[in-house]
Design a protein around this nucleic acid. Sequence first.
DNA 1: ACACCTGTTATATATGTTATATAACAGTTT
DNA 2: AAACTGTTATATAACATATATAACAGGTGT
Lengths: 125, 125
Amino acid sequence: MLKINIDYNLEDTVYRQIYNQIVEQIASSNIHPGDKIPSSREMAGVLNINFHTVNKAYQLLRENGIIELSKNKRYIISKKNKTGDAVDDFKKRETDIINEAMVKGLNSDDIIKTVKNILNLKGGG
Amino acid sequence: MLKINIDYNLEDTVYRQIYNQIVEQIASSNIHPGDKIPSSREMAGVLNINFHTVNKAYQLLRENGIIELSKNKRYIISKKNKTGDAVDDFKKRETDIINEAMVKGLNSDDIIKTVKNILNLKGGG
DNA sequence: ACACCTGTTATATATGTTATATAACAGTTT
DNA sequence: AAACTGTTATATAACATATATAACAGGTGT
């Protein structure tokens, strides 16, 4: 079941943590396209936060095509479909963090290895 | 010379754009370790923004060890030295954006290719 | 010595974001 | 009908962003 951990010590906002962790669980095949996610009120109750905060995470997931409304007013995980926007967005964000990593002393090998390591943990998990 | 473009249409804050673009120019060997960067007031004047906004970008660069104060009170680009924090930080941010890319339909090949592409543009530039 | 530059600190203000707290509404499920 | 869903609307408090001044210590160049 979809388990979210909120850490108020992190710099990330609460709705961003919810967003990233739902994405993570889809990426890890913990939840799958078509699956329902908890209602914003239910999730908020479990996490002991306001349902608007959960709502904001859900709205952002919806804007990015990661979840969608089913006919019975429940959010479900969308099917994957690689859009140009998704590719462009990835490239842009990737460029920024690779730049920073290299400026901090990591080399191409470090970066490739780290990326492959992250991918292997998913593929081989 | 260090050229920064501020785009108020982007979601990124102004000081984050300054931060990322300075990092980008170091990564691209447009500026090098030891080089001075413009004073916050000078940069602010050119960009027509408040010098505190530039200052915030500089403070963040300094906290991350990317620039440092020279003896004559000028910020200069730091030498690269790969710290454990830098590696951990890269891995954490990388994981989040790879997760999202895969959920949006990119596969391992797409990701590796994009990363190699970004690295080649720098190495082969 | 002087004016001028540097980064830093302090205050104040305006605007936007984040998170909470209620309330209400239309539609679905049971 | 009762209980649930997402959505919209208001209000509030705390924080982040960006601007506007002002002042200070220290380095630079004349």
